[in-house]
Write a protein that binds this DNA or RNA. Structure first.
Lengths: 337, 337
DNA sequence: TTGTATGCGTTATCAT
DNA sequence: ATGATAACGCATACAA
């Protein structure tokens, strides 16, 4: 079938173990023979069989990645970061999409656990108990989710949200609504908590929690009318997709953004500068989150004694665009809503 | 380390091969012992080691996927389709991102070739010679690219483009520009060719090829001014991202869409209905393309004698939105441009 | 029906 | 510095 170390050994006139050493431990073999082995190996197109190697070394040079939805720009960015970092470190990536179904996360992890050296679990929807159990069965690193002492890349939502709220407060907004994501979402909890921290620091700020919505455009569309009724002059959305839904529905309802209502998204996905009006959004260094996840994971793979450090020095930035503006002098519009 | 078939065998009081059979060939073992083995196996959390199994069977139950850019919505959709179909068939997916670099495609394919049963190569940028060589080294299925007799999922651009052109012609457009993608892109060649086929059928239609641009928003921004100068009343973009760039730049140049110029994208990515104006686009069933790629690949993996069938009965649909409208009676605007 | 023995391709251990 | 050999965990041909 394929060319093996045995073939190379025969052609090069050496033993099979010399072939193995010539590739893995170059300094344990004489320069002359090493050159000869390497040449014939390259000439024959020899590549070690990862399965055979993994069987004896116990390592696969492959890591796993589980995300809720590959088509979601948020996870696409993380995936890109994971893949690029893994490749740079000589690892392959097995990726799985749970389709936003918490119960699939467990199955997917178990299915791939034997094929990988560790798994990056991104924004898992499963309960803590399941995650903790999984961490016992395989090496695990969490991204955008905290759970016990499991190593994780935590997104510091407070930092970004503070920037966004500072921006809105400076524009004169005093009643701000939050359109939340899934109640089970760790990010949603963290974002809401961050908003409340900021609100606690500003007694004259009225924070209105409008509840949970689907984390897609449809969720924003569903929430828009509640925003209008709330009489808030600004709204922070769970993510950019939700913000797009708000933008769309608000326009169809005859509300102008930002003249009547300001809208802020979170994630700053590439599309956010292309909507009309373009979307003010809190940028999260997602690709770097993916990279950080791999770094954390490979730290354990290579040196299992590494303490479960939580990695979270990621830089945010608020990108102000057209969807936010100052509060109008007389917000009479709401009276008629 | 982990629980092996040996452990299960000892606990269940049978031989190691009975364990193997109980899981792989249920009817070659007595119902009683099978039940006992299966029970203890489940109780101990036994999962066969894929590396060991693959070493002897030669199959890995894993397929590879190589795309130019995971963050591009086009490829994200294909990836989603590949992953979902593979999982349904009991396969894992190793995914790699070539970062739009043709030379990386070759490396990535070779790196993963020994770990997978076959590779889905999506929209490769590499020359035919490289692809052909790769097809000799591993089982390959192409998506959105044709190359010799290599099995491929071809996107029938003509079908979708005909619909789009029919739409524009019906609106009265007679001078239509095309903002192309990379010259080396197979889709770009196919799309331009399709446009020319349609043009040949309509002698009174003036098709203007504006040349090649980056397949991103930046490309559309770069092309917008050329569109204006061309005096075309409608423009077809290589893809939706390019169309977004056109929309953005045209607006900043003071042109109204669709009043002054109609814009049509290709791909119909989710964001297209959220721009302003929303984008008329030719929808390509990308997720299905990914699925079809996997079907084609697994066909060969399971039965190598399958003839290299080209699979291309995918359904398109033109989604008409706000960015296209009838030609104005007196297109005076262009005179001043 | 079940157990025994061999081999997949590689790395690791030991001997030379 | 190099070669022979065992072992990794499993599937399979063959024996019982």
């Amino acid at each position: 079938m394929s060319v093996t170390a045995r073939d190379v050994a025969r052609v090069a006139g050496v033993s099979i173990s010399t072939v193995s050493r010539a590739l893995a431990k170059p300094d344990e073999v004489a320069p002359a023979t090493r050159a000869r082995v390497l040449d014939t190996a390259r000439g024959m197109g020899y590549l070690p069989n990862p399965a055979a190697r993994g069987l004896i070394t116990g390592r696969t040079s492959t890591i796993g990645l589980i995300v809720p939805d590959l088509e979601n720009p948020f996870f696409a960015a993380v995936t890109k970061g994971v893949q690029s970092r893994a490749r740079a470190a000589g690892y392959c990536v097995i990726v799985a999409d749970s389709d936003e179904d918490p119960s699939q996360e467990e199955d997917l992890a178990r299915t791939m656990s034997k094929r990988v050296d560790g798994i990056v679990l991104c924004s898992p929807r499963a309960p803590d108990s399941v995650i903790a159990q999984l961490a016992l069965e395989c090496r695990l690193v969490l991204v955008n989710r905290a759970c016990g002492d499991i190593p994780a890349v935590a997104i510091n939502n407070l930092m970004g949200i503070s920037q966004a709220m500072g921006h809105l407060l400076a524009l004169g907004h005093r009643k701000i609504a939050y359109v939340g994501g899934p109640a089970t979402s760790w990010s949603n909890t963290a974002r809401l908590a961050s908003l409340q921290v900021v609100a606690a620091e500003h007694p004259n700020l009225d924070l209105v929690d409008l509840g949970s919505f689907q984390p897609y455009v449809s969720g924003g569309i569903a929430a828009a009318d509640l925003v209008i009724v709330s009489e808030a002059t600004a709204v922070v959305a769970y993510n950019d997709l939700v913000a797009f839904g708000l933008l769309d529905r608000l326009r169809h309802r005859g509300f102008r953004v930002p003249d009547d209502i300001s809208v802020v998204g979170i994630d700053n996905i590439p599309m956010s500068e292309l909507t009309f009006p373009s979307l003010t959004s809190v940028g999260i260094p997602l690709v770097n989150c993916g990279r950080a996840g791999v770094d954390l994971l490979l730290g354990f793979v290579r040196d299992p004694s590494t303490p479960p450090t939580h990695h979270h020095d990621l830089s945010f930035r608020l990108v102000v665009r057209e969807s936010t503006g100052p509060v109008r002098a007389s917000p009479a519009l709401h009276a008629t809503a």
